[in-house]
C-alpha cells in the first residue's frame, strides 16, 4: 500500500468571528507520487486547505500530516514546494529567473558560503525540466504568465520538495498556455514522481493533470477520478451554499449555474484581470 504524502483527518477550521467553518470535517489522503486535483468554487475552503497543509494556520479540530510530519515541521524541512497565485510576487525585483530558482534551492546556505555545485546543478536540471532554461537569464519582471509559472515551478522543485502544491495555477493563462501547463505537470510527474496537488476553481486545470479529483465546498463532496466528475457532481459542487449565506440570501432567487457555465464565467473573468506588467499575459 503506498504511503501517504499528505493526510487530512477530520479537519475542521473556522476563522475567528466567521459564522460557519471554512472547512467542515474534511478527511483526505494524498498518496506519495499521486496527482490530486482539488476542485471547488471560490470561498469553498481550497486556500484554507492549502494554508493548513503549509502549517500557516492550525485546524480547529482534526489533524494534518505532511510526509508523516506536522505541517510546520514539514515546512521547516523544506518538503513542500508551493507555487502561489502569481499576483503575490514583487515582479519589479531586479533578479533573473536563475537567481529566483537558486533562492529556492539555496536560501538556507550559510551566508559565508557560495551556493554549492550540487545545488547549482539541481537548479539547472529543474530549469531544463520546466523549459525555463530558455529564459533563465531574463529578469523575472519581463516574463509572460506561462514563463513565470514555469519559473515558479522550477523554484519549488529546485528546493527538492516532495509535495508540489499549486494554488490556482491557470488564473490569467490562455487556453494554449493551459495545455502547455498540463504537459509540464505530466513531464515533472513522470521525471521526478513528486506528489502534486493542484487547487483550483477551474475545471480544466484540475482535470488535465490529476489522477484523482477531490470536490471541496466546505465539506468534501466527492473524491473521484476525473472521469467520475459527472454533471450532477459538478452541479452540486458549484451551487453549494459555501459561505453559509442562505440566511442572508433568503427571499432572493438564486440560480445554480450549470457547472461548465460557472467555470467558464470565472475563467473569463480571470483572463481579463490586468497583470502587474500592464499587458495581457500569454504563454511564450
Amino acid at each position: 500500500m503506498p504511503s501517504p504524502a499528505v493526510e487530512f483527518s477530520g479537519v475542521t477550521f473556522q476563522y475567528p468571528g466567521a459564522p460557519a467553518p471554512a472547512l467542515d470535517n474534511v478527511s483526505l489522503t494524498v498518496n506519495a507520487g499521486e496527482r490530486l486535483g482539488v476542485l471547488g468554487p471560490n470561498g469553498g475552503g481550497k486556500s484554507t486547505l492549502l494554508k493548513l497543509m503549509l502549517g500557516l494556520i492550525e485546524p480547529t479540530a482534526g489533524s494534518v500530516r505532511v510526509c508523516g510530519m506536522p505541517p510546520r515541521s514539514a515546512r521547516a524541512a523544506g518538503v513542500i514546494g508551493y507555487v502561489a497565485q502569481r499576483a503575490d510576487a514583487e515582479l519589479s525585483m531586479p533578479l533573473s529567473v536563475r537567481e529566483i530558482v537558486t533562492l529556492g534551492a539555496a536560501w538556507r546556505v550559510p551566508p559565508w558560503s557560495a551556493v554549492p555545485t550540487a545545488a547549482r546543478a539541481r537548479v539547472q536540471r529543474m530549469l531544463e525540466l520546466t523549459g525555463a532554461d530558455a529564459f533563465a537569464d531574463k529578469p523575472i519582471g519581463k516574463l509572460s504568465g506561462g514563463q513565470l509559472q514555469r519559473a515558479m515551478i522550477a523554484r519549488a522543485l529546485a528546493a527538492d520538495a516532495k509535495v508540489l502544491a499549486l494554488d490556482e495555477p491557470t488564473v490569467g493563462i490562455d487556453a494554449a498556455g493551459q495545455k502547455l501547463f498540463a504537459e509540464l505537470l505530466a513531464r515533472v510527474h513522470a521525471e521526478l514522481a513528486v506528489t502534486i496537488m493542484v487547487v483550483s476553481h477551474d475545471l480544466r486545470a484540475v482535470v488535465a493533470g490529476s489522477d484523482r479529483v477531490a470536490c471541496l465546498a466546505r465539506r468534501l463532496h466527492s473524491h473521484t477520478s476525473p472521469q467520475g466528475l459527472t454533471p450532477q457532481v459538478l452541479a452540486e459542487l458549484f451551487s453549494h451554499d459555501v459561505a453559509g449565506l442562505s440566511g442572508v440570501l433568503a427571499g432572493m432567487h438564486v440560480h445554480a449555474h450549470a457547472p461548465s457555465e460557472c467555470c467558464e464565467h470565472e475563467h473569463a473573468r480571470a483572463d481579463r484581470t490586468p497583470t502587474t506588467q500592464g499587458t495581457p499575459r500569454a504563454d511564450a
Binding site: 503549509l54 500557516l56 515546512r75 521547516a76 524541512a77 523544506g78 513542500i80 514546494g81 508551493y82 507555487v83 502561489a84 503575490d88 510576487a89 514583487e90 525585483m93 533578479l95 529566483i100 533562492l103 529556492g104 539555496a106 536560501w107 538556507r108 546556505v109 551566508p111 523575472i140 515558479m152 528546493a159 502544491a165
Partner: peptide
C-alpha cells in the same frame, strides 16, 4: 543585510511563498 541576504531577497520577492518554503 549581507548576512541575511538570501532569506531577505526571498522574502522581498515573494512573501507568501517564502513562508511556505520555511523562510
Amino acid at each position: 543585510a549581507w548576512w541575511f541576504r538570501r532569506p531577505m531577497l526571498f522574502w522581498a520577492f515573494d512573501e507568501d511563498s517564502a513562508a511556505a518554503f520555511g523562510v
